[in-house]
Write a protein that binds this DNA or RNA. Structure first.
Lengths: 334, 334
DNA sequence: GGTACTTTTTACATCGTTGGAACAACGTTG
DNA sequence: CAACGTTGTTCCAACGATGTAAAAAGTACC
């Protein structure tokens, strides 16, 4: 059924190795033989057995990508870009979902054998320093997004503190004085970074911080954003602006405001984070922090590529990719 | 560096095969030896080399999933469910993106060697009958979503014609008389099926079909939906309802209506298709056809599993998974 | 103690590929 | 024409695992 090098060799009347040499572009093959081998290759429709090749070469040709859930737009978009970037360098991408739980993350991390994949890009959500094995399965690991803790591992992300500060400063510059935040979650590194940026911006604008204006969010989903917004608006002195830690929360918040009969941005201005594709089409469209996801994916794949192809000595990199503030109707109005 | 069976065997003082037997749960191993092997396994932290094992077993442990783009919510959600379903059966999933172009789809299809993956789930967009190799790389193939043409290949999808008819009947039942459609695209099988359902529902409701009410859409993206809606509303006798062939088009349409100062559903009722998570949170929320994506993913993985594990004789299956109509504000109002 | 049987372990070949060394063929050179 | 370097090819071992078959050890019975 399946064609192997041996079959091709028999047909072409040469040794297996010669065929292998032709397949791998080895220079010194007699033109006559090369021709015959190529013909035999074409006739049989030979395809290398990737597993066997990699067994021999000690490579797998696969890259793992660990994310919480593909159904979350940010991760769907990011995964798509990672796959594209990896493909350019000859890798196929294997996706593992963790649902953002620490146990699944730890499990996934420890299951990444060097035989399964050549390297891994991981986007942890709940992982802690102790969860990182000293030697993560013997393969290069690159972390995406925020790290909760200090681990000497390659890392690519935007400057979350600065990005959050930028978002909140924007709200302050519009004259908003009661700026709330939605998304506090002590178990997520990203949350504390964005919270830090939020506080920094408040301080900068001469506004005082109040716990009452910071709504927690276990999951950063739309429904949670909606509920959080409602409870903020139900307070005695409701906010006149909200910084949501991601776009899903913001979309939920938009909806909550509308359901209560208030207007965005007149009554409440809203800023999100991630620039999901849907955010440009919500009503009103959403002002948001726009990370350069392509740059992020490229940088991460590039880094893991460098590590895999030899660079094991240089110290862990910490790469920051650019972001922008996309100003739309939810703060600017129509 | 890497621990192999041999290392474990040396440490435990038994043969390689005995270790292999323990690892694979072979019954006849002396308790004493089993204990020592297990200890050695634990000490060394042995992990099987998947590549080598599969080389020997003739399996790869991978399943391919071919989709247009992960950044499209429907495919992100679907991919997530497929990965989960595959994982239950011990497979890892490899994702290939085609951008929905015929050339990339064909290329992907032909690159799926039996060594790379055990089977593949493909969601073609533009592929035609001729593109399907008689023997698709020697591995089981299951098609997801609509086939443009008749190919004797396993297939899992919802009844698109019926679903579209359901959506449009709903609009007609609300008393709408000028029901438009957005998404015509002769190169996509899905489009013609949904169009057929649309026409069937019109006929059933005693409404006449008019080409002027059917807007084409090359890509089924939000921006296209918005543009299409605007041009429909600019006509002499604008529609009072629109059936969009997917939720992205519908979200774009929602926005267009709002930008023109009209109201949904009072002036124009809108129905989408796919039930993307975002559709429950748009303003107004979107009435849409809700395919049971979990059932779809499960059925597809199950089918490819059956094919891989022996069932090669039974004729190509054509499985229909259930769907519902999710009625929300875009047709019902607040 | 020998035979027959079962349980347990081992040696060996094998999956499809590639690296390295050995070997063969060739034209050049002294 | 012998010695030599270059080019092209083949043979063999190896990657890490498992299936097969045969060997070894153990048990039961006569």
């Amino acid at each position: 059924m399946t064609v192997t090098l041996k079959d091709v060799a028999t047909l072409a009347g040469v040794s297996v190795k010669t065929v292998s040499n032709v397949v791998n572009g080895y220079a010194f093959v007699k033109p006559e033989n090369r021709r015959r081998v190529e013909e035999a290759l074409a006739v049989t429709g030979y395809r290398p057995n990737v597993g066997a090749r990699n067994l021999r070469r000690g490579r797998t040709g696969f890259l793992a990508l660990m994310v919480p859930e593909l159904s979350i737009p940010y991760f769907g978009e990011l995964a798509g870009l990672v796959i594209t970037a990896a493909q350019k360098r000859g890798w196929s991408v294997l996706i593992e979902q963790t649902q953002g739980t620490r146990s699944r993350e730890r499990e996934t991390l420890s299951s990444l054998g060097p035989h399964l994949v050549d390297g891994a890009l991981v986007h942890p959500e709940a992982l802690e320093a102790a969860d990182f094995p000293a030697d993560p399965g013997g393969i290069p690991l690159v972390m995406l997004g925020e790290h909760a803790v200090d681990v000497p591992i390659d890392h690519v992300a935007i400057d979350n503190v600065l990005a959050a500060r930028t978002a909140v400063s924007h709200l302050a510059s519009l004259g908003r004085r009661r700026i709330a935040a939605i998304g506090r979650n002590p178990e997520r590194g990203t949350s504390s970074q964005r919270l830090a940026g939020y506080r920094a911006a408040l301080a900068e604008a001469g506004l005082s911080y109040s716990d009452a204006l910071v709504a927690p969010a276990e999951k950063w989903h739309r429904s949670v954003g909606s509920a959080a917004m409602k409870s903020l608006l139900a307070s005695d002195s409701p906010p006149d602006a909200v910084f949501c830690f991601n776009d899903l929360l913001a979309v939920g918040a938009l909806r909550a405001v509308a359901e209560l009969g208030l207007r965005v941005p007149e009554d409440v201005a809203i800023v999100g984070f991630d620039n999901n594709e849907e955010s440009a089409f919500s009503l009103p469209s959403l002002t948001t922090i726009a990370p350069d996801k392509t740059a992020l994916a490229e940088a991460a794949v590039d880094l893991v590529h460098r590590r895999i192809t030899g660079d094991t000595t240089s110290p862990p990199q910490d790469i920051q990719t650019p972001f922008g503030l996309e100003i739309r109707e939810s703060t600017r109005g129509r």
